[in-house]
Design a protein around this nucleic acid. Structure first.
Length: 201
DNA sequence: CGGACGATTCTCT
DNA sequence: GAGAATCGTCCGG
């Protein structure tokens, strides 16, 4: 049985870009009545709030959807995009709407359950996208506003990535100059990331 | 109340 | 690499 002691609250208080990198290798766990599924985070993107045109919280936009981004570090921000649920870790201090999007994980536990949910058998295609991993883990809008420090949604220590790569964020071409910020991070060489080609130093 | 719009995914070509 | 699917949220009237 792997260690699933939740990460301490202090973990989430580091600057958003640091947190985005620190989350790589961490174990994301979701418990449901059907069973437990978990995976190591291998890809993240940072969204930095008021000054980040790509962020939902750009210009301090505050709606029912983005409200939890203002709640302080360590909360889960889930939202729907084209019928898919996407998962973020809220960062920064209270009233500063910043967050880290979880874009891909490496399957670790409950793999047969994840395959069943995704209706596929290909391990590398199971959780290599923000909408794919939530479906595989069973993360839904019911997780909106939950803390990552207690069941059924937990972030725990995993492994330390040998090397971290970074590049432009994905899917935000309509975000002015913010689209070029190198705020996407991934575990270099991992076969479980969502894209392989785009890379910059 | 209607219309536009995605921090996506899948299926082709 | 392009295009469709598809639906909740947000904003304007």
């Amino acid at each position: 049985m792997m260690d699933r002691t939740p990460l301490p609250a202090e973990f989430y208080t580091q600057p958003t870009l640091e947190l985005a990198k620190a989350l790589l290798g961490c174990l994301l766990i979701k418990e449901t009545p059907d069973g437990t599924a978990a995976g190591y985070i291998v890809e993240t993107e940072a969204y930095k709030g008021p000054e980040d045109m790509a962020a939902h919280s750009y210009n301090n936009r505050r709606t029912k959807r983005t409200e939890v981004m203002y709640a302080g570090p360590g909360f889960a921000y889930t939202y729907l995009m084209h019928t898919h649920c996407l998962l973020n870790v809220v960062s920064a201090e209270k009233d500063k709407p910043e967050a880290v999007l979880i874009r891909a994980i490496e399957p670790a536990e409950g793999i047969s359950l994840m395959k069943e949910r995704r209706k596929m058998d290909n391990l590398k295609n199971l959780t290599n996208g923000p909408g794919k991993l939530t479906k595989a883990l069973g993360v839904t809008m019911e997780d909106y506003g939950r803390l990552f420090s207690e069941p059924p949604l937990i972030l725990a220590e995993g492994y330390t990535p040998a090397e971290i790569a970074k590049g432009k964020r994905i899917g935000i071409d309509n975000s002015g100059e913010a689209k070029d910020y190198p705020w996407r991070f991934w575990v270099k060489g991992s076969p479980y990331v969502s894209r392989h080609q785009i890379e910059s130093s």
